[in-house]
Amino acid sequence: MKQSKRFFMIPYFIWIGLFVIAPLVLILYQSLTNTQHQFTLQNYATYGTSTTYLHMSLNSLWYAFLITAITLLISYPAAYFLSKLKHQQLWLLLIILPTWINLLLKAYAFIGLLSRTGSVNQFLTFVGIGPQQLLFSDASFLLVATYIEIPFMILPIYNAIVELNPALINASRDLGATNWQTFRRVIFPLTISGVKAGVQAVFIPSLSLFMLTRLIGGNRVITLGTAIEEHFMTTMNWGMGSTIGVVLIVMMFIIMALTNDRRKKRREVNDDEEN
């Protein structure tokens, strides 16, 4: 059995080697070469000294932060209210359904909605504000990115809220806490793991939404993802593209380290002590 099991696992291990480890090694290796395939640290030097790159990175981080914050602000109450509804499975399905519509189609819808003569501007004209340049602005990028990420934030938070033992809320009320106190001292701390999972699910992709910056942001917003895409697909400077890629990977690990469940770690430590 053991041998046959090993045999069946071979494709999986090949996958790990070829599509998990090798790409990471290759992107690191590529970042250390120039266009003439020579070993060099030049890309990192360029990145570290160029105000354009640093500014772009900070900008990308800032936008990712904004997208995450706005999404969280909208999603937490939505998830909370959702958990109080009847027929939750149906409503949940309705939250998930838009995520199955191709992202490009949703972006395309906003091109129509936000265009100079689009419905939003018609509405603005109607209420007397007059048409505005909506498309190809920072705000439109934020709006569309937030729109796309909302379901990915609602779901983990919803799951965390549903897992919450209702007896704890009753206990808190029983001990004299008001609704707000119960929320602040019991519900929120216990659902923070869902928030962290949501932040992870939203923040990292937000660093790399290059198609939105192209279609909606009109190249006014440049994210790390946009820069990578440009270096790989347009200027063909794979070395520099990989360097930015490595920066993005490092940021990803930082975010994951920050949002990893601390409680879990503490539990592991306790286990060790018991053993």
Binding site: P23, G225, I249, M252
Partner: peptide, 16 residues
């Protein structure tokens, strides 16, 4: 690959 941004997956696969 679950947590990597699509761009990284795409770029690194391209190199591969």
């Amino acid at each position: 690959l679950m947590v990597s941004p699509d761009v990284i997956i795409g770029a690194s696969f391209l190199i591969l």
